[in-house]
C-alpha cells in the first residue's frame, strides 16, 4: 500500500515538474512578444518614466493610431502585401509543377536536381544581392515590387519545392493510377485528384513562403530605395534609425506587422509542422 501511494505521489510530482518546465519554456519563448504588446498599449509618459511598470497603468491605442496615421506605415504594409503576393503566386505555379515532377517521375539527374535546389541555399545572401542589384538595375526592376518578389523567389522557390515534394510524396501513386485508368490524363489526374488531396499541404507551404517573404529585411534594404516599393521591415527599421521612432509606435508597428504572421501560423500550424518535420522523422 505504501509503495503504491509513494509511486502515485512520485508520478504526481513528475507531472507538476513537467508543467513547471513547460511553462518556463513557454514564458521564455513568448515573453518578449507579450512585452511588446504591453509596451504598445502604454502611453508614452509611462514608457519613459523611470518607474518601470509591468502591466500598463492606462491602456491606450494612441500608439497604433500614431504609427498608422502619422507615418507611411500603411504604404509600407501595402508594398509588403503586394511583394509577398507576387512571390507566393510565382512559387505556387512554378514550384507546384516542379515538385510534382520530382515527386512523381524517376528521371536521370533527379537526385542531383534535388540536391541542387538545396545547395542553392548555401550561397551567401550578399553574393546574390550584388549581382541581383546590378541585373535588376539593368532591367529597370530596381526599387520595384516585382523585382523584389523575383529576388525573394531565389531563396524561397527551393524551399517551396522541397516542402511541397514531401506533401506530394504522401499521396499514394495508385490513386493517381486509378484516375488515369478511369479516363483522366496525367494532368487531369493531377488537377482533379492529386491537388485536392495536397491542398492543406499546399496552403501550409504557401503560408511558410509568405511568412518568409513578409519578414525579409536584407534584400529589401538593398533593392528598394523609395517609398514606392519599400517593405515594412525596411521602413520600420529606417524610422527607428533616422527618426528616433518612439517606443510605443515601434511596438505598435511590430504588433501590427506580426499579426498576419501569427494568425496564418495558427491556422495552418499543424499541417505546416508536419511538412517541416517530414524529413526529421524519416531520418
Amino acid at each position: 500500500m505504501a509503495v503504491v501511494r509513494s509511486r502515485r505521489a512520485r508520478r504526481r510530482i513528475g507531472v507538476v515538474l513537467s508543467y513547471a518546465a513547460m511553462l518556463t519554456i513557454v514564458v521564455f519563448a513568448i515573453f518578449p512578444i507579450v512585452w511588446c504588446l504591453l509596451v504598445s498599449l502604454k502611453p508614452e509618459s509611462e514608457i519613459v518614466s523611470a518607474q518601470m511598470t509591468y502591466w500598463p497603468r492606462t491602456v491606450t491605442f494612441e500608439n497604433y493610431v500614431a504609427i498608422w496615421t502619422r507615418s507611411n506605415f500603411p504604404t509600407l504594409i501595402m508594398n509588403s502585401v503586394v511583394t509577398t503576393t507576387i512571390t507566393v503566386a510565382i512559387c505556387i505555379v512554378v514550384g507546384t509543377l516542379a515538385s510534382y515532377a520530382i515527386s512523381r517521375y524517376r528521371f536521370r539527374g533527379r537526385s542531383a536536381l534535388m540536391l541542387g535546389y538545396l545547395v542553392v541555399r548555401m550561397f551567401p545572401a550578399v553574393m546574390i544581392i550584388i549581382p541581383l542589384f546590378i541585373v535588376m538595375r539593368g532591367f529597370g526592376l530596381l526599387d520595384s515590387r516585382l523585382g523584389l518578389a523575383l529576388a525573394y523567389t531565389t531563396f524561397l522557390l527551393p524551399v517551396f519545392i522541397w516542402m511541397m515534394k514531401g506533401y506530394l510524396d504522401a499521396v499514394p501513386p495508385e490513386i493517381e493510377d486509378a484516375a488515369r485508368v478511369d479516363g483522366s490524363s496525367r494532368i487531369g489526374a493531377m488537377v482533379r485528384v492529386v491537388l485536392p488531396l495536397v491542398l492543406p499541404g499546399l496552403v501550409a507551404t504557401a503560408v511558410f513562403i509568405a511568412i518568409g517573404a513578409w519578414n525579409e529585411y536584407l534584400i529589401a534594404l538593398m533593392l528598394t530605395t523609395s517609398t514606392g516599393s519599400r517593405t515594412w521591415p525596411v521602413g520600420l527599421q529606417l524610422m527607428v534609425g533616422e527618426f528616433q521612432l518612439p517606443w510605443g509606435s515601434l511596438a505598435a508597428g511590430g504588433i501590427i506587422s506580426i499579426i498576419p504572421v501569427v494568425v496564418l501560423f495558427v491556422l495552418v500550424q499543424r499541417v505546416m509542422v508536419k511538412g517541416l518535420t517530414a524529413g526529421a522523422v524519416k531520418g
Binding site: 519563448a29 518578449p32 512578444i33 511588446c36 519578414n215 529585411y217 506587422s257 506580426i258 504572421v261 501560423f265
Partner: peptide, 11 residues
C-alpha cells in the same frame, strides 16, 4: 514555442 522562429528579425 515555435512563435519566435516566425518573427521577423526586425521585430
Amino acid at each position: 514555442v515555435l512563435l519566435p522562429w516566425f518573427l521577423p528579425n526586425v521585430v
